[in-house]
Design a protein around this nucleic acid. Structure first.
Lengths: 147, 147
DNA sequence: ATAATAAACTTGCATTTTGCAAGTAATAAT
DNA sequence: ATTATTACTTGCAAAATGCAAGTTTATTAT
């Protein structure tokens, strides 16, 4: 696993200490915008992450409390990876990244396709909608844990 | 120099292909928020970038047209590195990164210190103010080039 | 009960990137 | 002419990445 060091007390560098690489934010993207939650689903993304890198990044994300790992009920040796509030709070960052990326690389597109058009049309409400939906799931799980 | 490949047509992965590492965005930060413009100034930042990494990243940023390199008039072997519109357009991304970083790592702070409080108080106008100031400089240089 | 299948990793190893120290080239001040 | 400053380049060790293959645990099929 990657070692974790804080290079400075800058909030940008502190954020980059966690996900300043080519892969970590793509896993977050898959979880947040594509609704993916399992190892196999992450492996299927277009960028073709290597299995050892994926395992490492899931470990980092869990250690930094951006995701929680849960045993899937009944289903084989399957696990679910769910976002925490800390990951959900990255939605505005990723939304701005999408807008920037598409502005300067217009051939790019998102999954789902509507995400990009929605962001261009009404950024604030699109971010709010994704955030609220994921926060609701998060509360729903907490409820389950209580019972 | 780092080789450049597009892993997919996702705007996020395309953006990360350029600055998905621990250093590139810090150089952009120095240029945009701290008004730095020379090699020596970048070297002085708290994170202590290695000189070969800095040289590499300045090359990437120039190749990707996020900065332009200019010979400093009269002054030694000095160069200036100025942001292009493409770099200035990253301000919203970095602003959201700052807010996220400080929310989950409250000990962090920005240079200048006012930047963080301004973003918390009025994100939209803070982003606009930084953007307009840098865009004005950019236009001013174009004028100079004409004469 | 046994075998086959599937999901989620782990391991080994070659390649690439990073980090650190030292050296060099071009210009300018003294 | 000598020294200092700025912006690099080079060499090398350490770490991260990428690829292929193997392992583990659990479930389904026979």
């Amino acid at each position: 696993m990657k070692k974790f060091t804080n290079r400075s007390l800058c909030p940008i560098s502190t954020a980059l200490d966690i996900f300043g690489d080519k892969w970590t934010l793509l896993v977050i993207r898959d979880i947040i915008f594509e609704g993916k939650s399992s190892y196999g689903e992450f492996m299927q993304s277009a960028e073709k992450i290597a299995t050892n890198i994926l395992a490492d990044r899931l470990g980092v994300l869990e250690a930094q409390e951006l995701i929680v790992k849960e045993k899937a009920p009944g289903k084989r040796a399957r696990h679910f990876y769910h976002p925490t509030q800390k990951a959900i709070a990255l939605i505005p960052v990723i939304a701005e990244l999408i807008l920037w990326g598409n502005k300067y690389y217009p051939d790019t597109y998102t999954h789902p396709k509507s995400l990009l058009t929605d962001l261009k049309t009404d950024k604030t409400n699109t971010i709010r909608a994704y955030t609220e939906k994921l926060m609701a799931n998060l509360n729903h799980q907490k409820e389950k844990r209580k019972t």
